[in-house]
């Protein structure tokens, strides 16, 4: 698939201006390693957009270049553009993107281990290196969706359970009141029930707080059920993209991600297939 074709097919015909739009973006690490080649995406206001694909497909890279944190890992958008809310934000730093209302929840439940749960939440009160507001009210949004956290405020975050840590990182991001929330593998390593809870809460947050989300996750079935639109990436390119309900029914997705028998939803179970070959 050539770059120009991708651009054409990926532009969605929607009346609203997308919150974030990637146009033929190429991302290079360390000046030599081509991680993402010519992808285009558009995320509409209020949508949940799923990014699917195997390890190393470039899902995290895309999220990192939108939030700006990829710059600290020597990542660079070398071609194309990232537009946020009509403004060109290609290669902008993390601080600037946070100020614009983009909050990124990194892969692997990155709580501040030595800090208590309450101190972790406190860190959500910062913008551009400065504290914005600080009163009890700010935590309300966190406790509304994750009431459990209120009971473990004084616990060192490093000692919290995996589920509690995942709640904490989402709650910490919510205190930011972001406009666009980027989530990288929110279900990784969690028990199925916790995964269900987390995704249900994310949908609630999306509807009630009107926070647009991009979710990159290996749990394709659950993510697609949650999402409005989905992109399937492989080898740094977008292979498929469609509204989530259409995508769920596509044969390739059924076979390789959801499993034809219907009970296996983990990509890892079927990794040995050569997906690309079947699609082209």
């Amino acid at each position: 698939m050539t770059a120009s074709e991708t651009t054409e097919t990926a532009t969605r015909e929607e009346p609203d201006r997308p919150v974030v739009e990637l146009d033929n973006v190429e991302i290079v690490y360390d000046r030599h390693f081509l991680a993402v080649q010519g992808i285009s995406m558009a995320v509409d206001e209020g949508d949940i957009v799923a990014l699917l694909g195997p390890n190393g497909a470039g899902k995290s890279t895309v999220l990192k270049m939108i939030s700006g944190i990829g710059r600290t890992e020597r990542g660079e958008v070398t071609r194309g553009s990232v537009v946020y809310d009509g403004e060109d934000v290609t290669n902008d730093g993390a601080n600037e993107m946070v100020d614009r209302g983009v909050t990124h929840i990194l892969e692997g439940r990155r709580v501040f281990e030595d800090l208590t749960v309450e101190e972790n939440l406190r860190c959500g009160l910062y913008r551009g290196g400065r504290r914005v507001r600080f009163d009890e009210d700010d935590y309300r949004i966190a406790f509304e969706y994750f009431p459990q956290l209120e009971e473990i405020l004084d616990l060192k975050a490093g000692y919290a359970s995996g589920g509690q840590q995942q709640m904490l990182v989402v709650a910490r991001a919510l205190i930011h009141r972001p406009r666009l929330l980027l989530l990288d593998e929110p279900s990784l390593g969690l028990a199925p029930k916790l995964v269900r809870d987390i995704f249900e809460t994310l949908v609630e947050i999306n509807r009630e707080e009107n926070i647009t989300m991009m979710i990159a996750d290996q749990n394709a079935k659950r993510t697609l059920e949650t999402a409005d639109y989905g992109y399937v990436m492989e080898n740094g390119q977008v292979e498929l993209h469609d509204p989530a309900d259409v995508l769920v029914d596509r044969e390739e997705i059924k076979e390789f991600y959801l499993g034809t028998s219907g009970d296996s939803s983990q990509y890892t179970d079927i990794r040995h297939y050569k997906i690309r070959k079947r699609w082209t």
Binding site: I69, T72, N95, V111, F112, E113, G128, V169, A173
Partner: peptide, 11 residues
């Protein structure tokens, strides 16, 4: 404790 996680919170 975690430079990157702090940065994406606007620190």
């Amino acid at each position: 404790s975690d430079e990157q996680a702090a940065m994406v919170l606007g620190v």
